[in-house]
Design a protein around this nucleic acid. Structure first.
Length: 436
RNA sequence: GCGGCCGUAGCUCAGCGGUAGAGCUCUCGGUUGUGGUCCGAGUGGUCGCGGGUUCGAGCCCCGUCGGUCGCCCCA
């Protein structure tokens, strides 16, 4: 109580999410689950610094307007130009740098997962943050990386979502070579801008894509028709995909290669539940460096929300940092985006704000040692236990347990345990008591 | 970076020229140290900030900052 102290009004920083304990516990549950699933497939964990040298981040010619540069509040002029550091905007570039740097210390194919925050200076929006978690899974090999890994990425992603009981996400898969070969086959020189428009198919519809392409003036009507035909191809399995794409009748070597690769991947995934993955020719993520398989996870019921998973295969990932040929394939799960969506829709599991299972009540100061002894016995048996901090009236202590949703309260004076959900109270022994 | 909407209590919002409100939260109480439900009472706001119009501004005008939605781009 002072009118002299200047209060700095606490307020959230847009684009930098933070949660109450009960929500954070769900986030932790996601992380624990992801770790278990990734390790089940033999991926090991690495962690890289939050910052990289600006020149490392910029090596792939990424737009730098979204990169946060790090500087001290009072930096000398020469520090501002030399050896600048910036927050990483993804985990693929740091991985490439890491692999190049530790090349001799790693066994290949190198399978790693990485669950860190990344930063982008983009304008925040629904589902778009400036600081967010990505769970990245990648495999990097020397010279040759078997296609099985491309399928494994989809499999791991699916398995994680299933384990988290997240329904409504579908992984769309394509292959960059198909678009590339197709564009060459119909006589388009610069595919990128056209592909970017085709990518909006699910958002603006076939008509929207057609009109946008017409307005762009980059392609003629006959080409537009072919582009639309291609973009609208979706298939649940390899057989359906080959049947649908064969009607295009475009002869191009790269196109054929892409078709065969995508068929292989889809065939490998045939045992996943139907609807889990979908071959989809309209997707066009990461035009800059993906060279083969590309993935994009979208919400089935809200396609306009944006992608929650993105990834793909890239040849020579680390060529900017080492003179080796290191092909890789990886997938990045945009967990903060997905998390915020489920939170908003009320679809996250409801957890208590505290991990405490038993609150040992404190009747009076004389009982403190006895309360502590009970708590230690329970903790030794793996039960999360806390002792109430002060000898207050029991209604205060119970209110505390109630607010933290602690399921059991132990009364050391009577030697009884109260089940907060049922109100039932029974005698118990800390050496053998079971919660349920 | 460019356009539309919005800033009132801790939270969600009502009030749209004339004494600043509701619900939820929070605190206390409803005798016997036993919570949640229910009932009662109470705390809490220079109405984002600065200027202007007016007898009078939360309300109208200008500016500014912040938020939000869409576009670009992306997880």
């Amino acid at each position: 109580m002072s009118d002299k102290v200047k209060i700095i009004k606490p307020q959230p920083i847009s684009g930098f999410p933070e949660y109450l304990p009960e929500i954070r516990r769900v986030e932790q549950l996601w992380q624990d689950t992801a770790r278990r699933v990734f390790e089940r497939y033999g991926f090991c964990s690495i962690e890289t610094p939050s910052v990289e040298a600006v020149e490392v981040l910029a090596a792939k010619g990424v737009v730098d307007k979204e990169i946060y540069v790090l500087s001290r509040l009072q930096a000398d002029e020469d520090e501002k130009t030399e050896g600048r550091l910036a927050l990483h905007f993804d985990q693929t570039v740091p991985l490439a740098r890491y692999v190049a740097q530790h090349f001799n210390g790693l066994a290949f194919p190198f399978k790693r997962y990485q669950m860190q925050r990344v930063w982008r200076g983009d304008r925040p929006q629904d589902g778009r943050f400036r600081e967010f978690y990505q769970y990245d899974v990648d495999v990097i090999a020397v010279d040759n990386l078997p296609l099985h890994f491309d399928a494994e990425m989809a499999q791991v992603s699916y398995e994680l979502l299933a384990e988290l009981k997240i329904a409504g996400v579908r992984l769309h898969i394509s292959n960059r070579k198909i678009l590339q070969g197709f564009m060459a086959g119909i006589g388009v020189a610069d595919a990128a801008p056209i592909v970017r428009i085709m990518d909006k198919l699910d958002k603006i519809g076939a008509k929207g894509v057609q009109e946008t392409l017409q307005k762009s003036g980059l392609v003629n009507d006959s080409q537009i028709e072919k582009c639309l035909t291609l973009a609208e191809i979706q298939a649940a399995d390899a057989g359906e995909f080959q049947q649908k794409i064969s009607v295009l009748k475009i002869d191009n070597e790269i196109l054929s290669e892409g078709i065969s690769e995508l068929s292989f991947v889809m065939d490998y995934l045939k045992d996943l539940p139907s609807g889990a993955v979908l071959a989809d020719m309209s997707i066009a993520r990461g035009l800059d460096y993906y060279t083969g398989t590309v993935y994009e996870g979208r919400l089935i019921n809200d396609p306009g929300f944006g992608s929650v998973i993105a990834g793909g295969r890239y040849d020579d990932l680390a060529s900017s940092y080492i003179n080796k040929n290191l092909p890789g394939v990886g997938i990045s799960l945009g967990m903060t985006r997905l998390f915020s969506k489920l939170l908003k829709d009320g679809k996250l599991p409801a957890l208590a704000p505290s991990p405490t299972q038993v609150l040992v009540a404190l009747p009076n100061e004389e009982m403190r040692a006895a309360a502590q002894a009970i708590a230690q016995q329970l903790r030794a048996r793996g039960i999360n236990t806390e002792v109430y901090h002060a000898p207050q009236k029991f209604d205060r202590q119970l209110t505390y347990a109630n607010k933290k949703q602690i399921p059991f309260v132990w009364f050391p004076d009577s030697g009884q345990v109260k089940n907060m959900a049922t109100g039932e109270q029974v005698a118990a022994d800390a050496a053998s008591w079971q919660a349920y």
